[in-house]
Every structure is written in structure tokens, then in C-alpha cells.
Design a protein around this nucleic acid. Structure first.
Lengths: 152, 152
DNA sequence: TATTGTTATACTCTATAACTATA
DNA sequence: TATAGTTATAGAGTATAACAATA
């Protein structure tokens, strides 16, 4: 009885989750909050509606996440220039600095993991993961009731 | 700018999580509760202490998870034969049936995903994942304060 | 004294529903 | 009328701390 592909993939997924959860231990950050910062970092100032679409979460939740991140000094709400109902969320200097560090660590981990793989296996590994990802997306699409997420 | 190995792995991990979360939508089940059932299924009747160790979670949380699963009819608490402080948690018939179905689906998904991968890439994919898992474990061990989890 | 499981309390992430201010 | 964001409320998972019963 050997370990299946699925078991290996689930093991990796589990390790990522544990690592990530532990990394935010004792800080004001969390996976959901980092996700918000990530979106703001890559899409510039955005409305909370956009954040709700990107995280696939209700607008109510965004209020809480942005509240916490604003209190911690990572981002701030500004008035939208043309729509007085909306807030534009943007990073503070501290938020920008955090995202730079995070991206550096991401790259470092990325090459660290690649180094662990035999060069002769690397191309197949990438292709294999690509194929698995595509198949998973297909399977989920089959069971999902066509929920499309568009930009705004 | 191409997709890195880390990005691909994170994409797969994310897909698994979404798929799993959605699968339990509208049921009395959840990832944490399924984890409890999984342990009971594979280790026979166990105490809540053992469950707390296996899930790496406080005993308090186990009380809640077992309460919910008992209400839903998947498992039950019996008196421990020799230790009157402890409960022995075991599956009901309904719990056993659920775990059988779950294992079947697991196997089915496993071969479905393997089928998606070019046969020429399969061995390298498995070896590559093995190497990545090992490296991830090393990295986590470096940063972790030697927390060992033993059986009881 | 130490351990098993519980009650009490709190924090994070999530959801729905109702409401305010604006489009 | 519809949209942006909020308040109110609720449920799940997690944690610590204090406590009862039992080892």
C-alpha cells in the first residue's frame, strides 16, 4: 500500500496551511488579512466592493478585515473622488514595507523548494502540477452552479 | 514572468481547500469534524485526549466537535472501561457508512487526478512532491520549538 | 498532585438581514 | 431603485483559564 498522488498533494497543502497559520501567530496579521493586503498591493487603491469580490466574501467581512488592518497601521480608507458612498483602501508606508518583505520571502521560499527537487524531475513536476490543477478546476466547475467573479 | 513552483503548489492547495469547504456546505459536517471522524475511523474508539493530540487542538475544542458529531448521529461517547474520567468516542453505523463513502470518493478522486497527468511525467511528479514535502518539513522544524506529538 | 473533560470567556472568519447615505 | 458600507446577530473553529471528578 503506497502513498497516492492525492495523498501527497494533500500533505503539501496541509503543510502550507500550518506554516502560514503559525507565521501570523502573535501578530495582528492573519491569512484573510494578508489576502486583503495582497490585493491592495497588486491592484492599487480599491473599493471594499472590489475586495469583497476578490476574496469571494461578503462586504460585511471586508469591513472587519479593513478595520483591523487600519488599526494595525497597514492600510487606510480614503474618500472616493467621485462616489461619496465608497471608500478607497490603500496601503500605508508600513503596509508597503510589509508587502515588500513578504514578496522577498515568497521568492526565497520558491527557490528553496525548487532546489530541493532533482533537476531531472523539475519539468515533469511543473507539467504534472499544471495538469492536476486543470483537472481540479474542471471537477469543481462541474459541481458548481456557474458562479462567475468579475472585476469592478 | 512565469509561474513558479511555489505558485503552482499554492494554487493546488487553494483549490483543495475551496473544494472541501464547499462540499460540506449545508451539512452538519466540516473539515474539523471530518478530521475527528477520520481519526476515530482509523484508530478505533479513542479518548478525547487522543483526539486533541491528533488534531493538534485543545481538549476544549474537541468537546465542541464531538458534541456536534454526536448530535448529528455520526458518533457517540461511551464510558471508558477503566478510567471513569474519560470518554471513549466511537463511530455509529451512520458514521461508519459515511467514512466508507468518503474513502471511496477519495480513491476515485485520486485516480481521476492521476489520469490527468501524462504517464511520462508521473514518476517525476511523485518524486518532486516527495522532495518538496521533505524540504517543507525541514523548514518548519527549523522554526518550530520542538513540539512532538505522541500517541497515548 | 496530575489528568480528563467541562464551563466561562474571547478572538477570528464567515454569513444574512436590516439600515444609512448616496447614486 | 440600486449600490457602498455599516450595524446587529449568529455560527464555526480556535485559544486560555478555572473547575469538577477521578487517578
Amino acid at each position: 500500500m503506497d502513498i497516492t498522488l492525492l495523498d501527497r498533494l494533500l500533505a503539501v497543502a496541509d503543510l502550507f496551511q500550518r506554516d502560514r497559520d503559525r507565521a501570523y501567530d502573535g501578530t495582528a496579521l492573519s491569512p484573510a488579512r494578508m489576502h486583503v493586503l495582497w490585493v491592495v498591493h497588486h491592484e492599487g487603491p480599491v473599493t471594499q466592493q472590489t475586495l469583497a469580490l476578490r476574496l469571494a466574501v461578503t462586504p460585511r467581512n471586508i469591513s472587519g478585515l479593513v478595520d483591523a488592518l487600519e488599526s494595525a497601521g497597514y492600510l487606510l480608507r480614503r474618500a472616493h473622488p467621485t462616489d461619496r458612498r465608497a471608500h478607497l483602501v490603500s496601503l500605508t508606508d508600513r503596509g508597503v514595507a510589509l508587502m515588500r518583505t513578504t514578496e522577498d520571502e515568497h521568492k526565497e521560499l520558491s527557490s528553496n523548494l525548487l532546489d530541493a527537487v532533482d533537476p531531472a524531475d523539475r519539468d515533469s513536476l511543473q507539467r504534472g502540477l499544471e495538469a492536476v490543477t486543470a483537472r481540479l478546476r474542471e471537477l469543481m466547475a462541474e459541481h458548481a452552479p456557474t458562479a462567475e467573479v468579475r472585476a469592478s
